[in-house]
Write a protein that binds this DNA or RNA. Structure first.
Lengths: 134, 134
DNA sequence: GCTTGACCTGGAGTGTGCTCCAGGTCGCAC
DNA sequence: GTGCGACCTGGAGCACACTCCAGGTCAAGC
């Protein structure tokens, strides 16, 4: 099992070293090994867990809920159902968020079209003979 | 031209009265009329502008950029190109954000499937004869 | 054995976007 | 003319998720 220094882990995971420390402090990372000098030693499975965290984080899950998920993950088989439900609820929220963004994007694109039209009209006024070339 | 009290405006726009005051203070709303008692009086075009702000806000545009957009809007025809560019850039960011969410959502759904499989396997162990009924 | 650089700790500070509060004003209903 | 509720102001406070800092430790290279 390969092991990684804090610096390597930061680079691989995309979290800063400070964020890694912060995540350990609040309990999102647990059981991180130390070397004789007290420095953190990350494993492949730590990296995998960090990727999971990154995925949840980037889809807008609040830290508090990620904490709940990592507590469940520390539990055994009997927490599978709860974990599944948590992820499914989050998946639905992501779906809703995407739909909301799409909807708002339509409004923005409508505005964009309006401005494009206004600019066109303006151009036509400046050079009237271009008005028919629509 | 219909006019609206702060309370009505809050309800119609979805922003709280405090947020409306805050937006006026920082310059996102300008030229809001007052009645004789000094109370704000909003018009239909204020409401329309608030809808635009809501749209930009909910698609993740930072306040600083919304400020820039409202300054452009206060300018005349000669800012159309700049406004168009700003909106187009934002539209692209929204597009990217949606793509990013979709991509991360795939990872989450992969995890969901894994947990669902694990639960199935577990069930099969408890009642072995169900193992073939895949 | 000394320097260097990566890391350690606890705790304070930061940026963003609101949200709340104290103390006051106004207009209307009773 | 008193009470009430909606609103006003300036400014403080808050939630979130980090990010930075001071002061210190350790291992490796020269």
């Amino acid at each position: 099992m390969t092991s990684y220094s804090p610096g390597e882990t930061a680079e691989k995971s995309g979290f800063s070293i400070d964020t890694l420390r912060y995540y350990e402090k609040i309990g999102l990372l647990s059981g991180i090994a130390r070397d004789t000098a007290g420095r953190r030693v990350f494993t492949d499975s730590d990296i995998a867990w960090l990727e999971m965290l990154r995925c949840l984080r980037e889809t807008g899950m609040p830290i508090a809920e990620m904490l709940r998920f990592s507590e469940l993950t520390r539990g055994g088989t009997e927490t599978y159902t709860a974990r599944l439900e948590l992820l499914r609820a989050h998946d639905r929220r992501v779906e809703d968020e995407i739909a909301r963004l799409r909807e708002q994007q339509r409004h923005i694109q409508f505005k964009i079209d309006r401005y494009a039209d206004l600019l066109n009209t303006e151009k036509s006024c400046l050079s009237p003979r271009a008005a028919n070339t629509t």
